[in-house]
Design a binder for these strands. Structure first.
Lengths: 194, 194
DNA sequence: CTATATGTAAGATGATCGTCTTAAATTATA
DNA sequence: TATAATTTAAGACGATCATCTTACATATAG
């Protein structure tokens, strides 16, 4: 294999390993040594790929943005109906139940952590929400042209974030089921109202 | 002043200063030196009052529990109607707008932070939610005896936590206003339904 | 007043942090 | 194959962390 290729591959491997580590440990408790161990790269060598810890975070979030965009594109292709797409979004907490109960939402928990002291890094985590927000706005606009699509999108994000936080607090799977069902009913009531 | 009294007073002063610091910095980035500086107590002396950082956290959360209980008792005294009490609860994000936009919810952000790695400390932060949860259940039970009071209480907690998280993400005061109004409408719709 | 308990203040300790240097090993290029 | 560029791997660096010891000051009690 060409060396250039191998380098890119290792870099990608580090990013993906760190993605998981960041979710499970949080940014402040995730050390350079942790990253090196998890990715099976010598600590000194890690510096060759990323000069600072912030650079790793930047790469991980950029990777997340791509992954999310691809997922949403897949949904656009698979699900022709905007309502079905919105319901698919609302089901994320159900599908990711175990992780959410144990670690909360990957986006929400990161933003909450960075937003306190590392204000400069917070805008990075905000971008993760932007991808979902603009996608949700498109779905609502397409579905209900005369509604306030952005307010509806934010409302959905509010409720899913609340579900993740509270499910994490009480480690309660049923809480997720109940609240997601409630979101479904809300979505359906929107159709009736228009 | 008697020495015993003075000691208790200093201890209390440390707790209250740390309460604020914990909220603004988070647990992991709040060092013993930070606590000492904020409370104006020499670092070495701090150890006399609290043997470990976890002990400080324990004291701060116990202090929060008392403060919250007293606040809810005040509401019980001031507001005779359970619906008014629930609306008062829902207005917390409006009253604490600036803090929430800048630092998120003190309870939610702490639980999210501790829940990842320091699982042993997570149950401490969970207690903060228990106080609100049981109080909310009492209000709903009193107001709507035939409803699932716990599910309604959790739903309210979900939405307020979601508001705090998203208002913090987008630093958006209007988001709070809009979502709290939406909660008010939801509460009123419960009265109509029964 | 004296002795004992309580409170204060500074600094030591070892571990770990993010960052950086450097020299050897490997690979690409000519 | 010889030379240059890239990659690897180990360890040094100063800073800061939570924790602990110790010597000293003050207050309490007999």
């Amino acid at each position: 294999m060409a060396a250039r290729e191998k380098t890119t591959q290792i870099r990608q491997h580090i990013i993906e390993a760190t993605d998981d580590l960041l979710y499970r440990k949080g940014f402040n408790l995730m050390s350079f040594s942790d990253i090196a161990n998890t990715a099976n790269v010598p600590r000194g060598n890690l510096y060759y790929y990323f000069k600072t810890k912030n650079e790793v975070l930047d790469a991980v979030i950029k990777h997340r943005l791509i992954r999310t965009s691809q997922m949403l594109q897949d949904w656009d292709r698979m699900l022709p109906d905007p309502l079905e797409r919105l319901k698919r979004f609302a089901r994320i907490p159900v599908n990711e139940m175990q992780n959410i109960i144990q670690y909360g939402c990957p986006m929400g928990s990161l933003n909450t952590e960075l937003g306190k002291v590392q204000y400069d890094l917070k805008q990075l985590s905000q971008q993760q929400f932007d991808v979902f927000r603009s996608w949700l706005v498109r779905q609502f606009t397409q579905w209900l042209p005369h509604a306030n699509a952005d307010a509806l999108a934010i409302h959905l994000l509010v409720r899913t974030q609340g579900i993740a936080t509270m499910a994490h607090v009480y480690e309660d799977p049923q809480l997720i089921e109940r609240e997601v069902t409630s979101i479904d009913h809300w979505l359906e009531s929107l159709a009736d109202a228009s």
